[in-house]
Structures are given as C-alpha cells and as structure tokens.
Design a protein around this nucleic acid. Structure first.
Length: 964
RNA sequence: GCGGGUGUGGUGAAAUUGGUAGACACGCUAGACUUAGGAUCUAGUGCUGUGAGGCUUGGGGGUUCGAGUCCCUCCACCCGCACCA
C-alpha cells in the first residue's frame, strides 16, 4: 500500500461531514476567536490557484486556534450582487440569479475539494432576500441618523427634530449646506416638505443632486474608487462627470474617527497609509479675498480660498478659481467673457482621462476681475484654471508662485510678475517649496520661521474676521446609487420629490423580476421599466456592490436571525473579527465603508465595538506565467494571401540587430513559395511589427517550446500558418502577469488536487513563500512537498508491513526533534510564517525517518501538530492511532523547555572586546574580568546540539540575565 | 512628484532582539537498486582556487569586537496616491 491521498481525503471529508465537526456552537465556555476571509464574488470563470492562498492561510490559523482550545468562528459566503452577472444577463438574457447560483455551486465544489473547515450552516449570500432585508434595514438606520459633531456620535433624526424645535440649528452646523441657519420659530414655520429638505442635509444616508462619475458604457454611476485613471475599474470604459440625483452616505462626518482609530488597528503600515491618504487630512486656513468692486447693499463679494501655507500670504500674486467655481460667470468682465467661456467649454470637452494624462500642461484664462490683498491692499488678478479642482478645499486658491511649483509654472506661462518672499532661497527659476527657512518682505511676519509665521498670519486673520483655521479632508461622501438591476432595492418611496422610508415591517423590499436588463428612461435603472414599481413611486436605483459587503461579517455571527441583523448577545460574544485576510485591492473601498457602517451601528447602540477588523493580513497574488507566441506583421509590404506568421522567440531577439523586413519576407518565401509577396527593395522601409499572442500554457513545454501540431489543430483549417525559426522549433517567451482566462495562463486547483491531493496543494501554496508576497505559480516545486507528505505517511506505515507504530519509549534525541518542531510550528503560525513552518515539518520528518523512529510517543503529537496544514492526512493517521474523535477535537501538543534548551554551559561570541576567534572554548564563567557576554544562538546550537539559552549576559562575573 | 515597500545562489526562499549567511525545497551532477524511471535511496551543489585559502546578502561609505539586519548616500524594481493648494 502506498500513500493513497485520494481515498484518505475522501474518507476524512466524509467523517467531518458525518460528525459535523465544523459546526460552531453558539454558546461555549471556551474563549472565542473570529477569523474571516474576504468573501468572493462568484465569477463565471471559477477559482484559479491564486484564489485559495488566503483561504488556506486562514484555514490553517482557524484549525490551529481550535486545537489551541478556542471556539473558532470561520465562516464563508458570497458577495453575490454585482455588475458582471448583470452584464452577462444583458448579453445572454440569462437571469443574474441563475448565473449567480450556478457560479456559487461551482465555487463551493472547488472549495470543498481543498478541505476548508468552514461552517457552511452560517453561509451568507448578499443577494438572498433574507440577507438583504437587513442591508436595507441598516440603510434605513443611516437614513434616520445624523452626526452630532460635538459628541462625535451618530444620533436619531427624531432627536434632531426636537433640538430644532427648541433652539433651531444654531448649535448644529448643517453638514450638507453650512449656509442654512434658522431658529426654533423659523423651523416651526417650515412646511413638512421644507423640514424634510433640511433634515435631508443632515442624514447619514441622503439624497442629493451632485456631479458624479457617469459611465455611459456601463449605464451607471460609479464611486470615486471605482474610477481608475479616468476609466471605469471594471471594463476600462470612459467615464464623465454628470449632474444626477443620487443617494450618498455621509462618510465625511466620520473622517476624523476613521483616521484616529486607525491607530488602534493591527494593519500593515502600507494599508493604514493608504486609508490616511484617502481621508487626506490637512491643516490650514480659509481666507476671504474681497473683490475689487463697489459694494452692493453695503456688502462686497469675496472669494473664499483654502491654503495650508498661510505664511506665504504676502507672496500671493494672483488668484485661481476652478473653472466650475460658482463665481466665475458673475465676476467675469465683459471684455474677458468670450475667453473665459471658451476656456470653460474647452475644459468641459476634455475627458477626465485627457486631463489626467496632460497634467503638466499649463492652461487658464483671466476673468478680468481683481481682488484686494487682505493685508497690503494690493490688486491681484483672478484667473481660472483646471489645475484648481472644484472638489477640494473651496475650489479656489491664492497663487504664490515663488512657493509653489504649479503656481510658478502658471505665472511663468502667462507672464504674471512674481514676488519673492524667500530672499536668496528662491532663485527665480524654481519655486521654493521647503517648509523651513525665514520669510522675508512680509510685513509683520518678516524674518519669522515658516511654521511660526503661518500661526501668526492665521491669528491675525481670525482677529480681523477674514479667515479662520480649517482642517480639510480629501475624503468625499460616498455615492450610494446605481442605475442597475442586480443590487439591493432601496426601501424608499416618494411623495412627489420627497423620499420617505418604508416601514421596517415591510422589509425586505424584494427585487422584482424583470424581462429586460436595459436601462430605464433618462439614465434610470432597469427597475424604472416596471409599471407596478413606478406606480408605487419606488426608488428606481439599487444599492452599489459594497452595500452588502459592508456588514456581512456581522451576519455570520447570527446568520438565521429573522428579527434582527444579528442579536446583541451574538455580537457581544463574537465581537470584532480577530483576523481578517484578503487582498490589498480593498484598501480604500470595502475596508473604509465597513469601518463606517460599524461605527454607525455602534453609535446607534446596536453593537458594542466600533472597529470591525482588529488585525488585517494581506495575502499576495499568485500570478500566472503566460506563454507568448510572437506573430509577425509587416507594414509597407504588399503581401497577398498573408497567412498567420509565427516566429520563434530566438529569432525575435535578433530583430533589432540584423533582421529587416526584407529578410523576413525572404524567409517567408523560402518556406512557402506559393505566397506572393510584394516589393522587396528598400528593405529598411518595411516595418516589422511583432504582436504577442498568448497561447494556452498547456501546449508549451518546460523549455518554452510550442507543440506545433497541437497549436495548428486549434487554428482555422483554411489558414495554413507559417512558422519561422532557425531550428524547426518555435520558442515562446514568458511573462508573469495576472492569472486570467483571457490570458490562457490559468492553473486550475482542481487539476492540482486531482494529481497530488489537497494536503499537498495546501502545503505547497504555503511553502511558496511569505503569505503577503505576490509570486508566480510554478508547478515544478510541488514534488518536494508531495514527497514530504508521503515520507511522513511512511513514518506510520510500511508499504509491505502496513501499520508500524510501536509503543516503545522515545529517546531524548527523538523527543528533542519533536519538541523543537512543536515550538517552531507554534511560533511560525502565530506570526503567519507558514512557509517556514512547512520547512520545519520537513526537517522533522527527515530526522525522524533517519532515526527510524516509528514510536507512538513521538508520532501522536506530531499528527496533531501537523493537522492544521495537512488536515486529511492527519485525520487518517489520528484515526489509525485508535482515536474515535476527530483530530480537530484534540489539543495542540505542548513543548517542554528541557528538550529545546540547556544552559549548563555557555559559549560566548565576544567577551570584553575579544572576538570568538581569539578565545578558547568553553569559557570559564567564574573569571572576574568578564563584564559582558553575549551568546550566539547558532554558535550554541553547533556546540550544544540545540540546548542552550539564546543570550546570557554577565556583569562582573555574575550572570544577570538569561534570555531564552 | 509624494508616500509605502523590496533588493540574499541557477530558482522559490531562510536567518525571531546585530552573533558561523544561504535552513528547507526546486533544479542540476554523480552513484545505488532497476527492463525502464517521471518510483525510492545515497553523496555533492554560493562564487573562486589543484590546494591551504580568498571572496560573497544591489553599489559606495559609516557605527560596532562583530552588520543581510542599525545609520548616511546612490542605483534598480514593485505597490499606492497623484494638479489635494
């Protein structure tokens, strides 16, 4: 009998299922542990070997924690609403619910083969009405809440109403419109519609007309983070800005808390930094610059700007407004009107992509208007330019060319005189942007250091009431509407223009069936095509993809609750997710929204914690290695009846050096004289274009040679391909890139599992390298891991004699190997170093098999030690050792100090300036002149065979510290 | 441009607080048993040199008895943000 992973794994799975070993008890005296994977979106392509990387890591950790005596919640579910299923529906007419269901079934099957310990009874699907009922419910809570800025806490709208009735909004600035101001009697005088309009400006989920990213191709609005480099993240379609009525989440009200509580989280610095950047907090001042014009009704108009460099105010030479700024048309003078309007039109005509790629180009227009400097009274021209963004700060700046690169370039381009407030620090060629040095020629702040000068200026502005300190955030409110079908319907009905929440008792609002997934009229979603829906004046938008995923981690705690999203008892028991594993791609989207929802639910008293994910582990991607076959295109040659020409990569490399178009043409003719090829003279004018064609990686061998027969079979039979090469072989080049179906480089985990078994697959994925590093999949190395598992199995079994475990007492040498391995496993798992843990198993098994050790006393703990990594094999061994219960119910073995250390002798590396080379060993520690001794771990191991403390520190001959 | 990160054999990588660099594995070389080996086992494998030895963690410099690890500087690559005032 050999190691038969197929039957071992089948038996183990059957046993787990029969005994319900993965079921997580609701009540337990054990300490809890919650470890979560980012649930997948079930795409039609199925899983490839990259997907399970994080799942395997979390599975190992979950099993380990369970062996350590924790009650472990380790659930899985599906993020089932979203665009791809709907796009597919548009193309094929297949209902998204059906494709989603099929895809989930396939995912489930693939996941099961790898042996994950998920409690599937807790599975959630965001598209299930029983689930999205609560997504809608939470939306209603946000709709019914506002942020009390002074308490930094979300409160109920009803409380706000009673505040308004008593004192108006004097103590609660309106976040939606800071200009709104009223007292109690004014409030009471408002009509119901007016009151609701005001309240809408406070709600955490609110309706607003706003400029949003509109994607024509997808027919929907996209969130900021769904737009990448000026095109849609999904599909890469162009996007434009458009004014539309949209639902929003007032996440900006949480900016400060989202920023601050990052400090309490165990996330990578990179991840925290990304969130900090996204929130983008900056300290500065708002300053009013009055227009140089006659007062109307005793007031003058002013331009409010934001600056982080108030210290440079005396260097301001002109003003710049965003082209979209509301004052632009009213301040523009008659002479400048044409120029300004042309410029505004030009800016509007430019796609976001153009704007982004041509960042360095200077453009702008003069409005003809002037403002007066608040301190000097200097007249300053007002310009507009697209380098000032309407969405940041106030959409207007004071331009200080000597202290800012962009202002400098602008001034140079339009020949605006530049004042210098930095003396010799500014050379006239390049702006001085450092925030150190002394300010000059600046009235009351002259010769002050920059930081102090800034403070002084702001103080002065505040005294004069023309400016104030201001904290600014880049973060914008999150768009929460999609003109799409396959998402959660809003629990909202309209009376005229006024939206009303649907009574919570009527939830869920079921997503109705539609015949067509085409958009409705006027950019509305497909729901607008349903007469019954419209008759009830329901909201036609649906929620975005991140709605369901913003709270799913809570539902796992109490997945079948029909009365609450999760009971308080359940959330109080499980609390935060202890470890959350997933990719970095959700750094600012999902992770930020989840944090906000958690904080809101906390504020409203539904849960007892305000951060969802205590520790975050990012797994790297497993990339594919695409095989690229180069095809030749000839420009400038008249080639009739051009076949597909494929060229060996060896030959490609010669291109730049010696081969020209004509050489290629000659080669083609030699090989295939029937081809009629055009003019051959002027060879250098014939341009060769090499086009990459990604071939199925299965028809390329390990030396990158193409299986020409197999390839030809896949081609159109009428087109005879021509292959060009020096030696009758066609070589491909390789490229490491994302694994995807379209790149024909996908390795399917099912195939690997079928060939080597799930345990080998799991261990190999871990063995590849650190969990957070991206790396290409390479099937070659898997043999080593497979050999190791077989070797381990042979510690228990002999191919002839069968079961060979004996009751003999273990020797010290054997125990040392065992205990070192247990210790190492424990340490490595705790710090997520699964690759080195696998290595230590290999060492252990190698050593035990060279000692010919088949003893129960050693092998029984070893089976438990390895159970998290190779659960099927461990289960079988555990069972064969006579245990009725699953190995998961065993306790992780403990290691004993005596087998891993021995401090009877010390071997220092350096003593009082003497190096090891100059000393004799072992040293006499009673020597009085020894002041300090530091031991090298590796040195000790060599001398002591692994028994020693790591460091021993002596002072004046007395041992003062032993570090183990 | 700004922010974060990484650079170690032919390859994936170890080295936990500064202490024998390259564990473990792939690959490769030789050998054993074999009709055969894509099974198994043994030995070797950073570079260089016949050898003792010398050299080696992207380059250069520094701190230290001792540096892959700490500091400075330059280079390369990766990720994120990007006209954010």
């Amino acid at each position: 009998m050999e190691y038969d992973f197929d039957s071992i794994e089948k038996d183990a799975r059957a046993k787990w299922q029969k005994d319900n070993v993965y079921e997580v008890p609701e009540k337990s005296s054990k300490p809890k542990f919650y470890i979560l994977d980012m649930f997948p979106y079930p795409s039609g392509a199925g899983l490839h070997v990259g997907h399970p990387l994080g799942y395997i890591a979390s599975d190992i950790f979950a099993r380990y924690k369970r062996l350590k005596g924790y009650n472990v919640l380790h659930p899985m579910g599906f993020d089932a609403f979203g665009l791809p299923a709907e796009q597919y529906a548009l193309e094929t007419g297949q209902h998204p619910a059906i494709t989603t269901k099929t895809n989930i079934a396939r995912y489930r099957e693939q996941l099961d083969k790898i042996g994950f310990c998920y409690d599937w009874k807790r599975e959630v699907r965001t598209s299930d009405p029983k689930y999205y009922k609560w997504t809608q419910w939470i939306f209603l809570q946000l709709f019914d809440s506002w942020m009390d800025r002074s308490q930094q806490k979300a409160r109920r709208i009803a409380e706000l109403v009673s505040i308004f009735e008593q004192e108006g909004n004097v103590n609660h600035v309106c976040p939606g419109d800071e200009m709104i101001s009223f007292d109690a009697s004014a409030w009471k005088g408002y009509s119901v519609q007016e009151q609701r309009r005001v309240l809408m400006q406070y709600r955490l989920a609110f309706l607003d007309y706003a400029v949003v990213w509109w994607c024509e191709a997808l027919g929907t609005v996209l969130a900021n983070d769904e737009v990448v480099n000026g095109v849609s993240e999904r599909g890469g379609h162009p996007v434009e800005k458009k004014q539309m009525r949209q639902w929003f989440l007032r996440i900006t009200e949480y900016a400060e808390r989202l920023l601050k509580s990052l400090e309490t989280l165990e996330w990578s610095d990179a991840m925290k930094e990304m969130q900090r950047n996204w929130i983008g907090k900056s300290y500065g001042a708002e300053v009013d610059f009055y227009l140089d014009e006659a007062a109307v009704n005793g007031t003058k108009r002013f331009i409010k700007i934001f600056t982080t460099r108030a210290d440079t105010i005396f260097g301001a030479d002109f003003m710049v407004l965003a082209p979209e700024h509301e004052l632009v048309s009213s301040i523009t003078t008659a002479e400048q009107r044409t120029v300004v309007e042309d410029y505004v039109t030009y800016v509007k005509s430019r796609s976001e992509r153009e704007r982004m790629t041509e960042v360095k180009q200077v453009s702008g227009a003069f409005t003809g208007a002037y403002v007066l400097h608040p301190f000097t009274g200097k007249q300053m021209p007002v310009w507009i330019s697209e380098y000032v963004l309407s969405g940041y700060g106030t959409g207007a700046i004071m331009a200080v060319p000597c202290g800012d690169d962009r202002d400098h370039a602008f001034a140079k381009h339009f020949h605006i005189p530049i004042s210098n407030i930095f003396g010799e620090l500014y050379d006239g060629e390049k702006a001085y942007t450092e925030k150190a040095g002394r300010i000059q020629k600046s009235s009351f702040i002259s010769m002050m250091e920059i930081p102090q000068a800034a403070e002084k200026v702001i103080d002065m502005l505040e005294d004069l009431q023309i400016g104030k300190r201001k904290v600014n955030y880049k973060l914008r409110d999150a768009g929460f509407s999609r003109q799409r079908y396959w998402g959660e319907p809003f629990p909202i009905k309209y009376e005229g223009e006024t939206p009303y929440a649907i009574d919570a008792k009527e939830l869920p609002v079921i997503l109705p069936h539609v015949e067509s997934y085409k958009p409705g009229p006027e950019g509305q979603g497909p729901l607008a095509n349903i007469p019954e829906w419209m008759a009830e004046h329901r909201e036609t938008n649906t929620m975005p993809g991140y709605a369901g995923s913003s709270w799913y981690f809570l539902r796992y705690m109490d997945p079948h609750n029909e009365h609450e999203f999760a009971s308080r008892a359940a959330t109080d028991y499980w609390k935060q997710v202890d470890i959350y594993i997933g990719g970095t791609e959700h750094a600012v989207g999902h992770l930020l929204y989840s944090r906000m929802w958690t904080k809101a639910l906390y504020d409203l008293g539904y849960i007892g914690f305000d951060e969802p994910f205590k520790k975050l582990v990012n797994q790297g991607m497993i990339q594919g290695v695409s095989k690229i076959l180069w095809t030749v295109g000839l420009k400038g040659a008249e080639v009739n009846h051009v076949p597909a020409i494929y060229i060996s990569y060896d030959l490609c490399k010669e291109f730049g050096k010696s081969l020209f178009g004509a050489d290629i043409l000659k080669m083609i003719q030699q090989r295939n004289p029937t081809l009629i090829v055009g003019p051959m003279e002027g060879s250098k004018e014939i341009e060769i274009i090499l086009n990459p064609y990604r071939v199925d990686i299965n028809i390329v061998d390990k030396n990158d040679l193409l299986d020409i027969n197999e390839f030809s079979k896949q081609l159109d039979i009428n087109k005879v391909p021509v292959f060009l090469s020096n030696d009758n072989t066609i070589r491909c080049s390789s490229e490491v890139e994302k694994m995807s179906k379209s790149k024909r480089n996908v390795i399917n985990p099912d195939d690997i599992v079928a060939q080597y078994g799930a345990d080998t697959f799991r261990m190999y994925e871990m063995f590849l390298g650190p969990i957070d590093v991206s790396k290409p999949w390479d099937t070659k190395g898997i043999e080593g891991v497979h050999r190791f598992i077989k070797k381990m199995w042979r510690l228990y079994n002999d191919e002839q004699k069968g079961w060979i475990v004996s009751d003999e007492a273990a020797t010290d040498a054997e125990l040392r190997i065992l205990h070192k391995t247990i210790k190492k496993t424990e340490e490595d798992i705790e710090r997520f170093a699964f690759n080195t843990a696998v290595s230590s198993f290999m060492i252990c098994v190698n050593e035990l098999s060279s000692l010919n050790c088949h003893k129960l006393a050693v092998l029984e703990p070893l089976a438990v030690c390895i159970a998290a990594f190779a659960p099927h094999t461990a289960e079988e061994l555990w069972h064969s050792l006579g245990h009725k219960d699953s190995v998961l119910n065993a306790a992780f073995p403990t290691w004993e100090q005596q087998y891993v250390t021995d401090n009877s002798k010390v071997y220092p590396v350096a003593v009082n300036g003497k190096t090891r080379a100059e000393m004799e060993f072992p040293l006499d520690m009673e020597q009085a002149d020894i002041e300090k001794v530091i031991l090298a771990d590796a040195t000790i191991q060599k001398y002591m065979e692994g028994k020693a403390p790591k460091k021993v520190i002596f002072v004046k001959g007395k041992m003062i510290n032993v570090v183990v």
